[in-house]
């Protein structure tokens, strides 16, 4: 089945005899997708736009050759083993080129500064792929700090001590009550100026602090969903509060918070696109740059969307696997 419901509720009346029915609905779903796809296609035919998907490729995998230029005037010698030596007139140490796929000069030729000597075929990451890597880097590092911040804020939030309780409350309310974009500007321009933060650090800080507030609420509700008898049993065995939290409460809470946590982490990946406003070349900013260079606007944004989707769906698949693994004690 294509998209099988994960839990079949008996009271919804989904029974064996309805299997045939299901196949019909699934087929209808695929058919609808095809119709929508066709509609989009014909709509795009009507507008005056030439689709040029092949233009995107160089921005994903850059296969333009690496070229070598002469820095000064000199003379070229092609050696027997295929390497090239360039002796410069001004006495600079000679340039040795070990590998060349294309040669633009001949043996013994005199060349001038700036002349192209040779090139090597190569494949390197295109701008979009570099942007994707930056987005992954931003997300992973922010995720790490967001979970730490979230855990600390959650523990402070449920603590008996009003000082830490109030601080955590204030933090969560302020962060959840203001737009991320504004927070990014404040971190970059205000904190960034005071503490001399580079863009990347500022971006990570804003994303971690923002996501941390949401994770704190998720962890707090996870902890509070554990029956109080668990803490009582742990404490009555002589465990102190941190030990009971670490080995009894948090492992159980963690399991329950996985589904909302997955949603929050997916949000983090998507929210990371906002840091492009402080000139971090993430996937979104890379997209904007490529549009400016290639004029293949539609293709670029569809590609960018697809790359985000690959990231988020990989993450949600991974979390589903963890969930399944942890469910063996139920």
């Amino acid at each position: 089945m294509l998209f099988a419901p994960r839990y079949l509720h008996p009271y919804l009346g989904i029974k064996m005899q309805n299997k045939k029915h299901n196949v019909v609905w699934q087929a209808l779903f695929v058919l609808t997708l095809i119709i929508i796809g066709f509609a989009v296609y014909s709509a795009s035919q009507k507008i005056d736009y030439t689709w040029q998907w092949n233009r995107i490729l160089p921005y994903i995998i850059d296969s333009s050759p690496a070229e070598t230029f002469a820095e000064n005037d000199g003379q070229v010698t092609i050696n027997e083993n295929g390497t090239i030596t360039v002796d410069f007139d001004n006495g600079d140490p000679a340039l040795l080129i070990k590998k060349a796929d294309h040669l633009f000069v001949s043996d013994g030729a005199f060349i001038f500064a700036g002349d192209k000597i040779s090139s090597v075929n190569q494949k390197s990451m295109g701008v979009l792929l570099e942007g994707l890597l930056m987005t992954i880097k931003l997300s992973v590092i922010s995720l790490f700090f967001a979970i730490i911040i979230g855990l600390i804020a959650a523990l402070m939030r449920i603590s008996q001590n009003p000082l830490s309780r109030n601080f955590s409350f204030l933090y969560i309310e302020i962060i959840r009550g203001t737009p991320l974009l504004v927070q990014i500007f404040i971190v970059y321009f205000f904190l960034g100026t005071i503490f001399d933060l580079d863009r990347f650090t500022a971006g990570i800080t804003a994303l971690s602090v923002f996501t941390g507030a949401y994770i704190a609420e998720i962890i707090r509700s996870g902890i509070q969903s554990i029956p109080p008898g668990q803490m009582e049993a742990a404490r009555s065995l002589g465990m102190n509060y941190p030990t009971a939290m670490t080995y009894v409460i948090l492992p159980q809470a963690f399991k329950r918070t996985l589904p909302p946590m997955a949603g929050q982490l997916i949000n983090l990946i998507k929210d990371s696109s906002l840091v492009s406003v402080i000139s971090i070349t993430d996937l979104t900013k890379a997209g904007r740059e490529v549009v400016a260079g290639s004029f293949a606007t539609f293709e670029v944004w569809f590609t960018v969307a697809a790359l985000y989707l690959v990231l988020t769906s990989t993450l949600s698949f991974a979390i589903q696997r963890i969930e399944k693994r942890l469910s063996n004690s139920d």
Binding site: E232, S236, V248, D330
Partner: peptide, 11 residues
């Protein structure tokens, strides 16, 4: 201490 609801650690 032994409780009415056992309170074993389910994980």
């Amino acid at each position: 201490m032994v409780f009415q609801s056992f309170n074993l650690f389910p994980h």
